[in-house]
């Protein structure tokens, strides 16, 4: 790669740059969702896109997720490449039938005739005291379905490179952003780049404990690792970037070296990416493990409103640190 011209931009700008670049490159790409056009995006991710691409390609919808998600899937079957913004993934639940029953199964049910090159994107995870119905982490629920891919970036650089790959992918991609990350700043080159799916990033190299983390949890794990350094614990953090495909090889390679694995996944524990990773590690690294895989998830309760309860509900630095110490028999 040639020398990149770096500048610092926000996560939301990175997502917008990816979408805009791909829309300039491919006229079949369009953006549709609630408030994406005239309002400039409920979270300003699509700011300015209406001005550049016009109302035929940046399309405001009524609050009608099941309708517009289904409509976009029909358009994708014809060969358009829609980007569908859910203001929040929590709202995608009313579109569960189109996004789970149509998009990921169309290719299979049609015997290879009709695919669905579509990206669904929006905020996932707790935003901050939004209560039970608006704080969904859909990764556990949705990643269960074959036929889709799931992306969960943790920083602006990855968000841009992964979004560009998502838009060019011929299969349906669920792209999970986080309201808590949208203002995060990070270095992103001016030059074009794409990040392939299924390749984890070593967010921090270490020797004692492998922390497998998804999305925003990577950043919390990084803070924890810095703290644990003071206790002479060296953590290796894998930023998985995508849940489907899951980069099993990177996990196995790291755990075989450290012998210890902690998974940090903000979805509920039961039937989740975290449980999938645990099963994988127990199967593939059985003889290398010094302890069972420790898992840090959101508490197995609906998301509470009260600030203190929500803090305790979410995977937090204290719970992650406890899991690492416990897995190393240091507690």
């Amino acid at each position: 790669m040639s020398i990149a011209t770096m500048r610092e931009i926000e996560f939301r700008d990175a997502v917008r740059e990816a979408m805009s670049e791909e829309m300039r490159r491919d006229i079949r790409v369009m953006l549709i969702g609630e408030e994406v056009a005239q309002y400039n995006g409920a979270y300003k991710v699509s700011r300015g896109m209406l001005d550049e691409f016009g109302p035929r390609r940046v399309i405001d919808t009524p609050i009608s997720e099941s309708g517009f998600a289904g409509m976009a899937i029909g358009a994708a079957m014809m060969g358009l490449r829609p980007i569908v913004e859910f203001m929040s993934w929590s709202f995608s639940l009313v579109a569960a039938d189109p996004i789970l029953n149509n998009a990921p199964k169309m290719l299979y049910m049609s015997g290879g005739q009709f695919g669905c090159p579509i990206v669904f994107r929006g905020n996932d995870g707790a935003g901050g005291q939004l209560g039970s119905t608006h704080s969904w982490s859909v990764e556990g629920l949705f990643s269960n379905v074959p036929g889709m891919k799931m992306v969960i970036p943790s920083n602006p650089y990855d968000a841009k490179g992964l979004m560009k790959t998502a838009i060019r992918d011929d299969d349906p991609v669920f792209f999970l952003e986080s309201e808590r990350l949208l203002s995060m700043r990070g270095e992103v080159p001016e030059e074009e780049y794409l990040i392939p799916f299924g390749q984890a990033r070593i967010a921090r190299a270490g020797t004692d404990c492998t922390i497998v983390a998804f999305g925003r949890m990577v950043n919390i794990a990084l803070e924890v690792a810095t703290e644990l350094e003071k206790e002479n614990i060296s953590c290796e953090i894998l930023d998985m970037r995508t849940i489907r495909p899951l980069d099993a090889a990177s996990i196995i390679r790291s755990v075989k070296r450290t012998g210890v694995c902690v998974v940090v996944d903000q979805s509920w524990s039961f039937g989740s990416p975290g449980s999938e990773v645990a099963a994988l590690v127990h199967r593939e690294c059985f003889d290398d493990l010094d302890n069972y895989v420790h898992r840090v998830h959101s508490a197995d309760v609906p998301a509470p409103y009260a600030h203190n309860l929500e803090q305790e509900y979410l995977p937090n630095a204290r719970r992650i640190a406890e899991a690492v110490r416990s897995s190393l028999y240091r507690s």
């Binding site: 035929r56 099941s66 309708g67 289904g70 029909g74 060969g79 189109p98 029953n101």
Partner: peptide, 19 residues
């Protein structure tokens, strides 16, 4: 479920023809 899809097919033909 096929009605949103059908509306999407119409969206796509229109988009192809007009955009």
């Amino acid at each position: 479920a096929q009605i949103p899809l059908g509306v999407g097919l119409a969206f796509a033909t229109k988009y192809e023809d007009e955009v």
